[in-house]
């Protein structure tokens, strides 16, 4: 019987240079402190010697463009390449020094996909889509110099309205937990992004965050009180800059009713950075 042996969620632009440019020395110190906690989480994940790491994250209009924007997509195949961008700027630049290819756990990805369709989740699939910083920044910080475990990248459409609901993301997480439980594998799982930043996806509001909303989400995760999270609306998430919390909702569905421990929370005048780990039985 398979088991989820590690579960964490974290911010996903893990680049001191980026935050130094955006927020000065405070930005550098904050992201470095957050990265240290994520690296420690990675050491705990590696100690489990898990067969696979499921990574739930969002695309930033890199893998998918306006020909198709899947609500939920499972990356299948044997390996996955990192997104390439000429003259990369901003959050794309964090990818530049990372390895170009990563192994996938083909069988687990296939099981999540195939059993998902049977269970009523109309998942998209991709053999070719590359993964961007939302996946690779946390994965690389977690693994450090250690070999990266086989990945199962899963995209949630967090940004291009209309997005899947928080409730549906949670239900998909429950599905992943059922697939893992019926499998022979030990599995780690992370969700990435957030916390509050870029409210209303407005360039003129870059620099604003909603710390009160973040504290509310954190309280519910710490207490294992997940019911209020199911009712989060697209409008609430959009106004508070919590778009990427949809990724976290998938993870919450997979581990509910586990309680979370906040390893790091730091406010910046651009984004509130966080690293959270769940207590698994």
């Amino acid at each position: 019987m398979g088991t989820i042996v590690f579960a964490g969620a974290m911010s996903h632009v893990l680049d001191p240079e980026y935050y130094d440019r955006a927020c000065g020395a405070l930005g550098r110190r904050t992201v470095q402190a957050c990265m240290a906690q994520i690296a420690a989480m990675g050491e705990r994940f590696s100690a489990t010697n898990a067969d696979a790491l499921v990574v739930v994250a969002d695309d930033h209009l890199n893998a998918f463009s306006f020909n198709a924007v899947p609500a939920m997509c499972v990356r299948i195949g044997r390996d996955v390449q990192r997104m390439s961008q000429d003259h990369a700027e901003a959050f794309d630049k964090v990818l530049e020094h990372m390895p170009e290819r990563y192994p996938l756990h083909e069988a687990l990805a296939g099981a999540i996909l195939e059993q998902g369709l049977e269970a009523g989740f109309d998942l998209a699939m991709s053999w070719e889509a590359p993964i961007d910083h939302a996946f690779l920044s946390p994965v690389n910080v977690m693994h450090g110099a250690r070999a990266i475990r086989p990945l199962v990248p899963i995209w949630i459409n967090c940004f291009v309205a209309p997005q899947p609901t928080a409730r549906r993301c949670f239900a998909f997480g429950r599905h992943i937990a059922r697939v893992v439980a019926a499998s022979p594998w030990t599995v780690g799982m992370i969700a990435t992004g957030g916390l509050s930043h870029f409210p209303e996806l407005s360039l003129s509001r870059v620099g604003e965050t909603d710390t009160v909303f973040d504290r509310k989400l954190i309280h519910w995760m710490e207490t294992g009180d997940h019911e209020p999270l199911l009712a989060l609306s697209a409008d609430e998430l959009h106004k508070s800059g919590e778009h990427e919390f949809l990724n976290w909702m998938v993870l919450l569905g997979a581990v509910t009713p586990a309680r979370a421990d906040v390893r790091y929370f730091g406010e910046l005048p651009r984004i509130n950075m966080a690293a959270v780990e769940w207590r698994l039985a």
Partner: peptide, 9 residues
């Protein structure tokens, strides 16, 4: 979209 306008080289 914000992430596009913020990342065009």
């Amino acid at each position: 979209y914000l992430h596009l306008v913020m990342s065009i080289p």
